[in-house]
Design a protein around this nucleic acid. Structure first.
Length: 289
DNA sequence: TACACGTGGCT
DNA sequence: TAGCCAAGTGT
Protein backbone atom coordinates (compact mmCIF):
# COMPACT_ATOMS: atom_id res chain seq x y z
CA UNK A 1 0.00 0.00 0.00
CA UNK A 2 1.54 3.23 -1.15
CA UNK A 3 1.22 6.49 0.73
CA UNK A 4 0.60 8.28 -2.55
CA UNK A 5 -3.13 7.77 -3.02
CA UNK A 6 -4.19 8.74 0.52
CA UNK A 7 -2.04 11.86 0.34
CA UNK A 8 -3.55 12.86 -3.02
CA UNK A 9 -7.04 12.39 -1.64
CA UNK A 10 -6.20 14.33 1.52
CA UNK A 11 -4.84 17.18 -0.59
CA UNK A 12 -7.97 17.34 -2.72
CA UNK A 13 -10.00 17.89 0.42
CA UNK A 14 -7.65 20.04 2.48
CA UNK A 15 -5.55 22.16 0.16
CA UNK A 16 -5.18 25.88 0.75
CA UNK A 17 -6.20 28.17 -2.07
CA UNK A 18 -2.99 30.04 -2.64
CA UNK A 19 -2.83 32.51 -5.53
CA UNK A 20 0.33 31.04 -7.04
CA UNK A 21 -1.52 27.72 -7.35
CA UNK A 22 -4.23 29.24 -9.57
CA UNK A 23 -4.35 28.09 -13.17
CA UNK A 24 -4.21 31.76 -14.14
CA UNK A 25 -0.93 32.39 -12.33
CA UNK A 26 1.98 32.98 -14.70
CA UNK A 27 5.22 31.04 -14.55
CA UNK A 28 6.84 34.26 -13.39
CA UNK A 29 4.34 34.50 -10.55
CA UNK A 30 5.20 30.94 -9.55
CA UNK A 31 8.93 31.69 -9.65
CA UNK A 32 8.51 34.81 -7.51
CA UNK A 33 6.47 32.83 -4.99
CA UNK A 34 9.06 30.07 -4.75
CA UNK A 35 11.88 32.48 -4.05
CA UNK A 36 9.83 34.38 -1.47
CA UNK A 37 8.84 31.13 0.23
CA UNK A 38 12.45 30.10 0.80
CA UNK A 39 12.74 29.92 4.59
CA UNK A 40 9.68 32.16 4.90
CA UNK A 41 6.12 31.30 6.01
CA UNK A 42 3.18 31.60 3.59
CA UNK A 43 1.36 34.16 5.72
CA UNK A 44 4.21 36.63 5.47
CA UNK A 45 4.71 36.05 1.74
CA UNK A 46 1.12 36.57 0.61
CA UNK A 47 0.84 40.39 0.76
CA UNK A 48 4.33 41.00 -0.61
CA UNK A 49 3.82 38.52 -3.46
CA UNK A 50 0.60 40.28 -4.49
CA UNK A 51 2.33 43.64 -4.52
CA UNK A 52 5.26 42.29 -6.55
CA UNK A 53 3.29 40.52 -9.28
CA UNK A 54 0.95 43.48 -9.56
CA UNK A 55 3.84 45.92 -9.90
CA UNK A 56 6.13 43.67 -11.95
CA UNK A 57 3.93 41.20 -13.84
CA UNK A 58 6.74 40.02 -16.11
CA UNK A 59 10.49 39.42 -15.82
CA UNK A 60 11.03 42.30 -18.25
CA UNK A 61 9.13 44.74 -16.06
CA UNK A 62 11.23 43.89 -13.02
CA UNK A 63 14.44 43.97 -15.02
CA UNK A 64 13.68 47.57 -16.00
CA UNK A 65 13.31 48.68 -12.39
CA UNK A 66 16.25 49.74 -10.21
CA UNK A 67 17.49 46.91 -7.98
CA UNK A 68 16.83 49.12 -4.97
CA UNK A 69 13.12 49.19 -5.78
CA UNK A 70 13.06 45.40 -5.57
CA UNK A 71 14.91 45.45 -2.26
CA UNK A 72 12.58 48.07 -0.83
CA UNK A 73 9.47 46.24 -2.03
CA UNK A 74 10.83 43.12 -0.38
CA UNK A 75 9.97 44.81 2.89
CA UNK A 76 10.58 42.72 5.97
CA UNK A 77 10.44 39.29 4.33
CA UNK A 78 14.03 38.66 5.40
CA UNK A 79 17.14 37.57 3.50
CA UNK A 80 17.02 40.64 1.22
CA UNK A 81 19.67 39.11 -1.01
CA UNK A 82 16.76 37.12 -2.43
CA UNK A 83 15.25 40.35 -3.77
CA UNK A 84 18.54 41.25 -5.41
CA UNK A 85 18.86 37.79 -6.94
CA UNK A 86 15.27 37.87 -8.20
CA UNK A 87 16.08 41.13 -9.90
CA UNK A 88 19.22 39.57 -11.44
CA UNK A 89 17.15 36.54 -12.35
CA UNK A 90 14.66 38.72 -14.23
CA UNK A 91 17.50 40.30 -16.18
CA UNK A 92 18.95 36.88 -17.04
CA UNK A 93 15.55 35.65 -18.23
CA UNK A 94 15.26 38.68 -20.52
CA UNK A 95 18.78 38.33 -21.80
CA UNK A 96 19.03 34.59 -22.24
CA UNK A 97 15.47 33.25 -22.47
CA UNK A 98 13.54 35.80 -24.50
CA UNK A 99 11.78 37.11 -21.42
CA UNK A 100 10.06 33.80 -20.73
CA UNK A 101 10.64 31.74 -17.60
CA UNK A 102 12.42 28.60 -18.85
CA UNK A 103 10.65 25.25 -18.44
CA UNK A 104 13.41 22.80 -17.70
CA UNK A 105 15.27 22.25 -14.47
CA UNK A 106 18.58 22.43 -16.30
CA UNK A 107 17.87 25.94 -17.57
CA UNK A 108 16.28 27.14 -14.34
CA UNK A 109 19.00 25.98 -12.00
CA UNK A 110 21.50 28.32 -13.58
CA UNK A 111 19.49 31.43 -12.77
CA UNK A 112 20.46 33.68 -9.84
CA UNK A 113 18.75 32.58 -6.65
CA UNK A 114 17.44 29.38 -8.20
CA UNK A 115 18.87 26.22 -6.68
CA UNK A 116 17.86 22.60 -6.93
CA UNK A 117 14.62 22.95 -5.01
CA UNK A 118 13.35 26.07 -6.78
CA UNK A 119 14.27 24.73 -10.22
CA UNK A 120 12.34 21.52 -9.62
CA UNK A 121 9.38 23.39 -8.15
CA UNK A 122 9.11 25.93 -10.99
CA UNK A 123 9.56 23.31 -13.72
CA UNK A 124 6.82 21.25 -12.14
CA UNK A 125 4.31 23.78 -10.82
CA UNK A 126 4.65 26.38 -13.58
CA UNK A 127 5.29 24.11 -16.54
CA UNK A 128 3.99 20.67 -15.65
CA UNK A 129 7.36 18.95 -15.92
CA UNK A 130 7.66 15.71 -14.01
CA UNK A 131 10.36 16.61 -11.48
CA UNK A 132 11.30 15.45 -8.00
CA UNK A 133 10.59 18.29 -5.61
CA UNK A 134 12.41 17.88 -2.29
CA UNK A 135 12.01 20.58 0.31
CA UNK A 136 12.05 20.47 4.10
CA UNK A 137 8.38 19.40 4.20
CA UNK A 138 8.89 16.52 1.79
CA UNK A 139 11.98 15.40 3.67
CA UNK A 140 10.13 15.40 6.98
CA UNK A 141 7.07 13.52 5.71
CA UNK A 142 9.19 10.86 4.05
CA UNK A 143 11.61 10.59 6.99
CA UNK A 144 8.66 9.79 9.23
CA UNK A 145 6.38 7.78 6.97
CA UNK A 146 9.03 5.64 5.32
CA UNK A 147 12.25 5.80 7.36
CA UNK A 148 10.56 5.93 10.76
CA UNK A 149 12.60 8.92 11.93
CA UNK A 150 11.29 11.87 13.93
CA UNK A 151 13.12 14.33 11.70
CA UNK A 152 15.40 14.14 8.66
CA UNK A 153 19.16 14.56 9.03
CA UNK A 154 20.59 18.10 8.86
CA UNK A 155 21.65 17.71 5.25
CA UNK A 156 19.95 16.06 2.29
CA UNK A 157 21.30 12.57 1.57
CA UNK A 158 21.49 10.58 -1.60
CA UNK A 159 19.14 8.00 -0.12
CA UNK A 160 16.52 10.64 0.59
CA UNK A 161 16.69 11.94 -2.96
CA UNK A 162 16.29 8.44 -4.30
CA UNK A 163 13.40 7.73 -1.97
CA UNK A 164 11.66 10.93 -3.02
CA UNK A 165 12.20 10.06 -6.69
CA UNK A 166 10.74 6.58 -6.18
CA UNK A 167 7.51 8.04 -4.80
CA UNK A 168 6.79 10.51 -7.62
CA UNK A 169 4.03 9.12 -9.87
CA UNK A 170 4.93 8.45 -13.50
CA UNK A 171 2.19 10.56 -15.05
CA UNK A 172 3.43 14.17 -15.10
CA UNK A 173 0.02 15.58 -14.24
CA UNK A 174 -0.29 13.29 -11.23
CA UNK A 175 3.33 13.95 -10.28
CA UNK A 176 2.56 17.64 -10.19
CA UNK A 177 -0.26 17.15 -7.71
CA UNK A 178 1.82 14.74 -5.65
CA UNK A 179 4.67 17.19 -5.35
CA UNK A 180 2.46 19.94 -4.00
CA UNK A 181 0.35 17.55 -1.93
CA UNK A 182 3.22 16.05 0.04
CA UNK A 183 4.58 19.54 0.72
CA UNK A 184 1.15 20.66 1.89
CA UNK A 185 0.85 17.65 4.19
CA UNK A 186 4.18 18.56 5.73
CA UNK A 187 3.13 22.19 6.14
CA UNK A 188 -0.29 21.56 7.67
CA UNK A 189 -0.23 18.14 9.37
CA UNK A 190 3.20 16.55 9.50
CA UNK A 191 4.74 19.61 11.11
CA UNK A 192 8.14 19.75 12.73
CA UNK A 193 7.23 20.30 16.35
CA UNK A 194 3.69 19.15 17.02
CA UNK A 195 2.54 16.86 14.21
CA UNK A 196 -1.21 16.37 13.97
CA UNK A 197 -1.02 12.62 13.55
CA UNK A 198 -4.71 12.31 14.45
CA UNK A 199 -5.55 14.14 11.23
CA UNK A 200 -2.98 12.44 9.04
CA UNK A 201 -4.18 10.34 6.10
CA UNK A 202 -1.18 8.01 6.34
CA UNK A 203 -0.77 7.69 10.10
CA UNK A 204 -1.96 4.08 9.76
CA UNK A 205 1.13 3.15 7.83
CA UNK A 206 3.60 5.74 9.04
CA UNK A 207 6.77 3.95 10.12
CA UNK A 208 7.45 6.57 12.77
CA UNK A 209 3.96 6.35 14.31
CA UNK A 210 4.06 2.55 14.16
CA UNK A 211 7.38 2.64 16.01
CA UNK A 212 5.78 4.64 18.81
CA UNK A 213 6.84 8.11 17.61
CA UNK A 214 10.37 7.90 19.03
CA UNK A 215 12.17 11.16 19.81
CA UNK A 216 14.73 12.61 17.42
CA UNK A 217 17.96 10.70 17.72
CA UNK A 218 20.43 12.21 15.29
CA UNK A 219 23.28 14.70 15.25
CA UNK A 220 22.47 17.87 17.23
CA UNK A 221 20.62 20.43 15.15
CA UNK A 222 22.48 23.67 15.57
CA UNK A 223 20.29 26.57 16.42
CA UNK A 224 21.18 29.75 14.60
CA UNK A 225 22.33 32.54 16.85
CA UNK A 226 20.91 35.99 16.46
CA UNK A 227 21.59 38.34 19.36
CA UNK A 228 24.76 40.28 18.71
CA UNK A 229 25.44 38.83 15.27
CA UNK A 230 26.35 40.60 12.07
CA UNK A 231 23.05 39.43 10.68
CA UNK A 232 21.15 41.41 13.27
CA UNK A 233 23.18 44.53 12.48
CA UNK A 234 22.77 44.08 8.73
CA UNK A 235 19.03 43.72 9.19
CA UNK A 236 18.87 46.90 11.23
CA UNK A 237 20.89 48.79 8.61
CA UNK A 238 18.67 47.56 5.81
CA UNK A 239 15.59 48.67 7.74
CA UNK A 240 17.06 52.18 8.05
CA UNK A 241 17.92 52.29 4.34
CA UNK A 242 14.51 50.99 3.25
CA UNK A 243 12.79 53.67 5.27
CA UNK A 244 14.96 56.50 3.93
CA UNK A 245 13.79 58.50 0.92
CA UNK A 246 17.28 59.91 0.32
CA UNK A 247 20.83 58.63 0.78
CA UNK A 248 21.77 58.35 4.44
CA UNK A 249 24.93 59.47 6.21
CA UNK A 250 27.16 57.06 8.05
CA UNK A 251 25.91 58.55 11.31
CA UNK A 252 22.35 57.61 10.39
CA UNK A 253 23.41 53.95 10.49
CA UNK A 254 24.89 54.13 13.98
CA UNK A 255 21.68 53.03 15.73
CA UNK A 256 22.00 49.68 13.95
CA UNK A 257 24.95 48.90 16.22
CA UNK A 258 25.61 51.82 18.55
CA UNK A 259 28.30 50.24 20.73
CA UNK A 260 30.64 48.61 18.25
CA UNK A 261 32.02 50.73 15.45
CA UNK A 262 34.25 47.97 14.14
CA UNK A 263 31.31 45.63 13.71
CA UNK A 264 29.26 48.44 12.24
CA UNK A 265 31.81 49.12 9.54
CA UNK A 266 32.32 45.43 8.83
CA UNK A 267 28.59 44.95 8.35
CA UNK A 268 28.28 47.99 6.10
CA UNK A 269 31.21 46.81 4.01
CA UNK A 270 29.57 43.41 3.75
CA UNK A 271 26.30 44.92 2.57
CA UNK A 272 28.15 46.94 -0.04
CA UNK A 273 30.09 43.86 -1.17
CA UNK A 274 26.79 41.97 -1.46
CA UNK A 275 25.33 44.72 -3.63
CA UNK A 276 22.57 45.50 -1.14
CA UNK A 277 23.97 48.93 -0.37
CA UNK A 278 25.56 51.47 -2.68
CA UNK A 279 28.00 54.20 -1.64
CA UNK A 280 27.08 57.42 -3.37
CA UNK A 281 29.95 59.67 -2.33
CA UNK A 282 30.43 62.21 0.48
CA UNK A 283 30.02 59.36 2.98
CA UNK A 284 26.48 58.61 1.97
CA UNK A 285 24.77 55.31 1.28
CA UNK A 286 21.57 54.14 -0.36
CA UNK A 287 19.84 51.06 -1.71
CA UNK A 288 21.28 50.04 -5.10
CA UNK A 289 20.15 52.03 -8.12
C1' DT B 1 30.60 19.99 4.30
C1' DA B 2 29.59 23.78 7.16
C1' DC B 3 28.44 28.24 7.68
C1' DA B 4 26.26 32.83 6.76
C1' DC B 5 22.27 34.85 5.62
C1' DG B 6 16.46 38.17 8.14
C1' DT B 7 12.38 38.14 10.30
C1' DG B 8 8.61 37.23 13.24
C1' DG B 9 5.22 33.89 15.07
C1' DC B 10 4.49 29.93 17.88
C1' DT B 11 4.97 26.73 21.88
C1' DT C 1 10.26 32.39 27.80
C1' DA C 2 13.86 31.20 24.93
C1' DG C 3 14.36 28.60 21.43
C1' DC C 4 12.59 26.54 17.51
C1' DC C 5 11.22 26.91 13.01
C1' DA C 6 9.62 28.55 8.15
C1' DA C 7 8.52 26.03 0.15
C1' DG C 8 16.97 27.26 0.46
C1' DT C 9 21.00 29.32 -1.90
C1' DG C 10 25.77 30.54 -2.42
C1' DT C 11 30.35 30.11 -1.04
Amino acid sequence: MSIVDPVLQWYAENRRDLPWRDESCSAWGVLVSEVMLQQTPVARVLPVWREWVDRWPTPASLALAPAGDAVRAWGRLGYPRRALRLHQCAAAIVEHHGGEVPATEAELVGLPGVGAYTAAAVACFAHGERTVVVDTNVRRVEARAVAGLALPAPSLSRAETELAASLVPEDPAVARVWNVAVMELGALVCTARTPRCGSCPIAGHCAWVLAGSPAYDGPPRKTQSWEGTDRQVRGAMMAILRAAADPVRLADLTPACPDDELRRMRCLDGLVADGLVEPVGRGRYQLPG
